[in-house]
């Protein structure tokens, strides 16, 4: 639903009426225009999709998490997909949106890194940094949107920046829109997880003008960061119908990338008898 004031009082758009529960693309065929041999049609919507990716900076590193589901509309189609992908030794890519575009991205980036590695063998120059890879991705996404043939994804890039001796965390999406912040989340996570992440981060670090920790603010420890990440993934599983209770957490520190085994949140689905608003009590 679109909650922007501009949409208040307006009838639902045709698409929202048609597919209010996002079952698209199930039971649908390609849009049939009057001219079936019309102009070139590029990607109009994502097909097999991954939901939110979330990320947070912590003391000495950055942490990303994404679940293992790739949906086909409302069908939980693939249940063991890995959406966190290491790029070289100190960068991690987390991808939401179209999974075939993600596979293309992986192929493209891995090829780039292989090429870079061969050059490094001759000149010993350090490899592409997280920031370099992020800039490349932003250019790739923006170039594709300029061709009206987008890669239908929203990505988080996390990494360790040796030049600044701090972690890196950035967002880029199908429009080529980019931004960095100490906590980030894509899609549904931007509504559900981002407030939780910001609250946890700012409670300890505070925030100054440049979105960096305040003067005397310290970052969360790895344990604290993982706790809030786990909490976010649980809430997302409770509230996001396109999620699954099986996710991975990746960390990047000075020492490199590590991606965890898949794990699950402890959930509680009993009737909420004692909870105000759900049980038998009237007040």
């Amino acid at each position: 639903m679109n909650h922007h004031p501009a949409a208040w009082g307006q009838p639902l758009t045709a698409h929202q009426q048609f597919d209010m529960y996002s079952t698209n693309p199930m039971g649908m065929s390609a849009p049939r225009s009057a001219h079936s041999h019309g102009p070139v049609q590029n990607t109009q919507w994502p097909l097999v999709t991954g939901t939110s990716v979330i990320g947070i900076k912590y003391e000495g590193g950055v942490m990303l998490a994404a679940d293992n589901l790739a949906s086909y509309g409302s069908l939980a189609r693939f249940r063991d997909i890995e959406r966190l992908h290491a790029l070289g030794t100190h960068t991690i890519l987390g991808v939401a949106g179209d999974m075939s575009d993600f596979q293309y991205l992986k192929k493209e980036l891995d090829g780039l890194l292989r090429e870079e590695e061969t050059l490094t063998l001759t000149d010993a120059h350090p490899p592409l940094s997280p920031n370099n890879l992020y800039t490349f991705l932003a250019n790739l996404f923006y170039a594709r949107r300029n061709k009206i043939n987008p890669l239908w994804n929203a990505c988080l890039v996390g990494g360790w920046d040796f030049k600044k001796d701090e972690s890196f965390l950035g967002y880029v999406d199908l429009l080529g829109t980019t931004y960095t912040a100490p906590t980030l989340a894509t899609g549904f996570g931007a509504h559900i997880a981002q407030p939780l992440l910001r609250e946890a981060y700012e409670a300890k670090a505070g925030v100054d003008l440049e979105g960096r920790p305040g003067a005397d603010g310290r970052l969360l420890t790895a344990e604290e960061a993982e706790a809030v990440i786990d909490d976010c993934m649980k809430v997302l599983y409770y509230r996001d119908a396109r999620s699954i209770n099986k996710y991975q957490v990746a960390r990047v520190t000075k020492d490199g990338v590590s991606i965890s085994e898949s794990k699950s949140s402890e959930t509680e689905w009993m009737y909420a008898e004692g909870l105000r608003g759900y049980g038998g009590q009237t007040q």
């Binding site: 000149d123 370099n132 800039t135």
Partner: peptide, 12 residues
Amino acid sequence: RMLYGRPIPVAR
């Protein structure tokens, strides 16, 4: 600089 935001390595 444009593609990677990186000054090109001199050897390259």
